[in-house]
Each structure stands twice: as structure tokens, then as C-alpha cells.
């Protein structure tokens, strides 16, 4: 399993990382070293094995529909890089 620089470019976009051309080359190289290693898994036949997304056999962990206090508005906004009129401010979307 090898990955091209173009594929890394696509991964960077999907991950919202503004990679420079140099970063891209470096990451492609190091990611390929790891992917080579991960190929080890293909030695195993897992065709009849169930996947395990969780480690504990928990299910139906519910909470009642009861109100809990929300954060005070000042605390909710305290970490905002930019705030205006009680809202989180962002630059234009498109």
C-alpha cells in the first residue's frame, strides 16, 4: 500500500492542513514508511472475524430527558478567538 504525493495533497485538504510543497514531500515519505509497516496486517486472514469498535460490551447507556445547567454565556464565549454580540465570529464562508 503506497500513497502518492497527489493523494497526500487530497488528504491534507480533507484534513484542512495548509501543507507546503516541502511538507507534502516529507509527509508522503514518512507516511509511506508507516503504510509499508501497516501492510503487516494483511498477513492475517480476518474474513470471518467480527470488528470490535468498542472494548467493553456496553449497550443502552441512556440518560433521562432532564435539564442540566448550561454554561454561563460569558464562559461559553470565553475562549472564542473572535466574538461579537454573543456569537462566535468567522470570516466569510465562500
Amino acid at each position: 500500500m503506497k500513497i502518492t504525493e497527489q493523494a497526500v495533497e487530497q488528504l491534507a485538504l480533507l484534513s484542512r492542513l495548509d501543507l507546503t510543497a516541502e511538507d507534502q514531500t516529507a509527509h508522503t515519505k514518512s507516511i509511506n514508511v508507516i503504510l509499508d509497516y501497516l501492510d503487516l496486517l494483511n498477513k492475517l486472514d480476518t474474513s470471518n472475524v467480527e470488528p470490535a469498535a468498542h472494548v467493553l460490551p456496553l449497550k443502552n447507556v441512556f440518560r433521562e430527558d432532564r435539564l442540566q445547567p448550561s454554561l454561563a454565556k460569558e464562559l461559553a464565549l470565553a475562549n472564542a478567538p473572535e466574538e461579537e454580540a454573543g456569537a462566535f465570529k468567522v470570516p466569510r464562508i465562500f
Binding site: 447507556v61 441512556f62 433521562e64 442540566q68 448550561s70 454565556k73 464565549l77 454573543g86
Partner: peptide
């Protein structure tokens, strides 16, 4: 009023983990 009904979970703060509301099910 905006951002007055938020907590670490629904604000996506680092470390916020939630539990499913039974009524929704």
C-alpha cells in the same frame, strides 16, 4: 439568546463526552 444553551458537549469543547437521551430513542 445566542449561545446560552450550550455546554462542553454541544459546544464541542475539548474533553466533552455525551450520553444519549432516552426520550430520543
Amino acid at each position: 439568546e445566542p449561545n446560552t444553551q450550550v455546554c462542553p458537549v454541544c459546544l464541542g469543547l475539548p474533553g466533552g463526552t455525551g450520553v444519549l437521551n432516552k426520550k430520543v430513542v
